[in-house]
């Protein structure tokens, strides 16, 4: 068995705002293997986004260990963190976070700018990525000329363009209507099936969770369930036993 892409061990994250001390993650342990499609679920304030910022190297845990693709992330300085974000992680955000003054092509090329890839190759790869997400005819459009679904496709193209180890998406369908949201989830599914891309999605939406293979459920910073489920909504634990329906997980969470 190869090393997990994401290996979070006993990670705790405490926000210390003087009087109000918040334990956003409490001794969390989880691992994600290459090729998995994982949903991190839980109600608002349960620590999903905090876990995602730790996994995305956007923030550091208060304690515990995070191994990313075999690298102990506590050993990385700021530049090395930037390089890992650039090479190994593809971010997709709820509000897209495209740069408004850049065209779709330029937005998608941005990670390659920071990856020091020559302009000609940048353009070729960015074009290919946009074609792959079905936006081959929107290369020169700026974000304000694109629909929500199209913007999220541009963001996904951008997240893929440096061939990362995994995609990290925080509520990727949160700003989209349900049909478009479904299409975006289908895109993740296709990328996973055809290219074996590892996808971690943070969501509070049961419909989104259903479309993933595995659900990690958080509550008050603690993982209260980590289970596989089939496409029909039956969640099973590591040993394949049926634990509970996804719908219930979410309701309980």
């Amino acid at each position: 068995m190869s090393t997990p892409v994401i290996s979070v061990s006993n990670v705790t994250k405490v926000f210390d705002g003087g009087d109000n001390r918040v334990v956003a993650l409490d001794n969390v342990t989880m691992h994600v293997d290459r090729g998995e499609m994982v949903a991190i679920m839980g109600p608002s304030g349960s620590g999903k986004s905090t876990l995602m910022t730790v996994i995305g190297l956007l923030d550091v845990p208060s304690s515990g260990r995070y191994m990313l693709d075999g690298i102990d992330t506590s050993t990385l300085d700021r530049d090395a963190q930037a390089a890992v974000r650039n090479q190994k992680i593809g971010f997709v955000f709820q509000n897209f976070n495209l740069l408004p003054r850049l065209t779709a092509l330029q937005n998608v090329a941005l990670p390659m700018v920071y990856g020091r890839i020559p302009p000609a190759e940048r353009e070729a790869r960015a074009t290919a990525a946009l074609v792959a997400v079905g936006l081959g005819n929107r290369l020169k459009n700026r974000p304000n000329e694109l629909s929500g679904g199209q913007k999220q496709r541009v963001a996904i193209a951008r997240s893929l363009v440096n061939n990362p180890e995994f995609l990290l998406a925080d509520e990727p369908t949160g700003a989209l209507d349900s049909r478009t949201g479904h299409e975006i989830m289908e895109l993740f599914r296709t990328l996973n099936r055809t290219q074996g891309i590892t996808v971690v999605v943070v969501t509070h939406d049961a419909e989104v969770g259903k479309q993933m293979d595995r659900i990690v459920s958080l509550r008050d910073g603690v993982i209260n369930m980590d289970a596989l489920h089939d496409y029909y909504g039956i969640a099973t634990d590591d040993h394949g036993r049926v634990r509970t329906a996804v719908q219930e997980v979410v309701n309980v969470g």
Partner: peptide, 16 residues
């Protein structure tokens, strides 16, 4: 500020 955050998430170093 947000743009800077996005750039950093995409791999921009402090020097960039």
């Amino acid at each position: 500020t947000r743009e800077i955050g996005v750039r950093k998430a995409l791999g921009a170093t402090d020097r960039d």
